[in-house]
C-alpha cells in the first residue's frame, strides 16, 4: 500500500504532451494522479495481468518505446532468481538507461531489493540462491563464469535502507573503497574524500571534523555519508535501496535533492515504495509485482498516462 498520496495539484491536461521526445532539461514536475475512470479494457476482471501473475504466469511486461530509445548501461535479460525453492524473480527483462535515474516501485516483497542486489551479486552471500538469465553491465556479463565479483562490485556503488556507516572516522568511511584498492597517497585520498563529500552535499557540515567518528552524525548525514562512500570511486551505476525509508521528511528531502544532483554524473537505480519519491527523483520508473516486471516507462508517462490499468491503479493508490 502506498504510504501517502499528495493531493493532485494539477490534473494533467488532456493532450498535454508528456510523451514528447523533446524533454526539457529540468525534470518535469510529475504530479501523482488521482484515481480517474479509465475505460476498462478486460471483460471479466479489472486486472487481467495481476490475475495472470497470481496464477503463476509471467506475462510480457509493457516496456515503453521511450525506454528502448535510451542507451543502455545495465541490461537485465530474462533474469530469474530463487531463494532455495521459492522463486523471487521471474524472467525480468529490463534495460536501464545510462545516465538516468530509474526507480523500481511495487508492493513490499515484490522483489525490488532482490533485483537490486542481483546487480552487484550481493545475493551470492545468501545460502541457496540460484539465478538464471543474465545481467550485463556496460556489456560485461555480471553472472558469467569467471567474473571477478570483487572487481564487479568496485564498479558499482550501493546504499542501503538503513544508514550503515562503519564505526570509524568520517574520512576513513569515505575513502574506504580506495583504501581497500590499495590507495596510500595521502593527497589523493584527501582530494577524493573532499570531492565525494561535496558531491554528497555533506562537505560543509563535516569538513572540520573529518577525524571524528561517523557514528556521531545524524541519520540523514549518515546516509549522505554512505552516498559519498559509494560514489568515491565513481561507480558506473549507483544502487539505492530505499535510501530514505529510515529518515525523517527533511532528511528525505535533502537526499532526494542530492539524488537529483548526482544524477547528472551517475546512473542511478533506486528502489522506493514511496510513489511520490519515484515521481520526484526518477526519469524512468519500473513497476514490479510478485517478482515480475509489469510496466516500465518514462516516469511522467507511467504516473500520468500508464498503458496498463494495473499500473494506473497502483500509482494512484487504488490497489497494492
Amino acid at each position: 500500500m502506498p504510504a501517502s498520496m499528495t493531493h493532485p495539484h494539477s490534473h494533467p491536461q488532456p493532450g498535454s504532451d508528456s510523451r514528447s521526445d523533446a524533454r526539457p532539461e529540468a525534470r518535469p514536475e510529475v504530479a501523482v494522479r488521482a484515481p480517474s475512470a479509465l475505460p476498462r479494457g478486460g471483460p471479466a476482471s479489472a486486472y487481467p495481468i495481476i490475475d495472470a501473475i497470481k496464477r503463476g504466469e509471467t506475462p510480457t511486461p509493457r516496456i515503453h518505446d521511450s525506454v528502448r530509445a535510451e542507451p543502455v548501461i545495465l541490461a537485465v535479460n530474462n533474469f530469474q532468481l530463487w531463494y532455495g525453492q521459492s522463486k523471487a524473480l521471474h524472467g525480468i527483462t529490463m534495460p536501464v538507461a545510462k545516465g538516468k535515474v530509474t526507480a523500481l516501485i511495487g508492493p513490499s516483497g515484490c522483489g525490488k531489493s532482490t533485483l537490486l542486489r542481483s546487480v552487484n551479486r550481493l545475493n551470492d552471500l545468501i545460502e541457496g540462491v540460484r539465478v538464471e538469465g543474465s545481467i550485463d553491465l556496460n556489456g560485461n556479463s555480471v553472472y558469467a563464469r569467471g567474473v571477478d565479483v570483487i572487481d564487479l562490485r568496485k564498479r558499482l556503488g550501493m546504499v542501503f535502507q538503513k544508514p550503515n556507516p562503519f564505526p570509524m572516522s568520517i574520512f576513513e568511511n569515505v575513502v574506504y573503497a580506495l583504501r581497500i584498492s590499495g590507495e596510500r597517497n595521502k593527497k589523493a585520498l584527501a582530494d577524493a574524500c573532499e570531492k565525494a563529500l561535496r558531491q554528497a552535499a555533506l562537505w560543509d557540515e563535516v569538513k572540520d571534523r573529518l577525524k571524528a567518528s561517523a557514528m556521531g552524525l545524524s541519520g540523514g548525514q549518515q546516509q549522505r555519508l554512505c552516498i559519498a562512500r559509494a560514489i568515491v570511486s565513481e561507480p558506473e551505476v549507483l544502487l539505492l535501496d530505499e535510501p530514505c525509508s529510515a529518515l525523517d521528511p527533511i532528511a528525505t528531502l535533502r537526499i532526494e535533492e542530492l539524488i537529483h544532483e548526482i544524477s547528472s554524473r551517475y546512473t542511478v537505480l533506486i528502489v522506493t515504495h514511496n510513489m511520490q519519491q519515484a515521481a520526484r527523483v526518477s526519469d524512468y520508473t519500473a513497476f514490479m509485482y510478485l517478482g515480475r516486471l509489469v510496466e516500465y516507462g518514462r516516469t511522467a508517462d507511467l504516473f500520468q498516462v500508464p498503458q496498463l490499468r494495473e499500473t494506473e491503479d497502483y500509482v494512484t493508490g487504488r490497489f497494492g
Binding site: R153, K162, I180, S181
Partner: peptide, 21 residues
C-alpha cells in the same frame, strides 16, 4: 550488524578485508 559486512562487500572489499578492517 550484517549491514557492516554487506556495506563493505558492496564496495568491493574482499572477505578478509571486511573482517580485518
Amino acid at each position: 550488524p550484517k549491514t557492516y559486512r554487506e556495506g563493505s562487500l558492496a564496495l568491493g572489499a574482499s572477505k578478509a578485508q571486511t573482517v580485518l578492517r
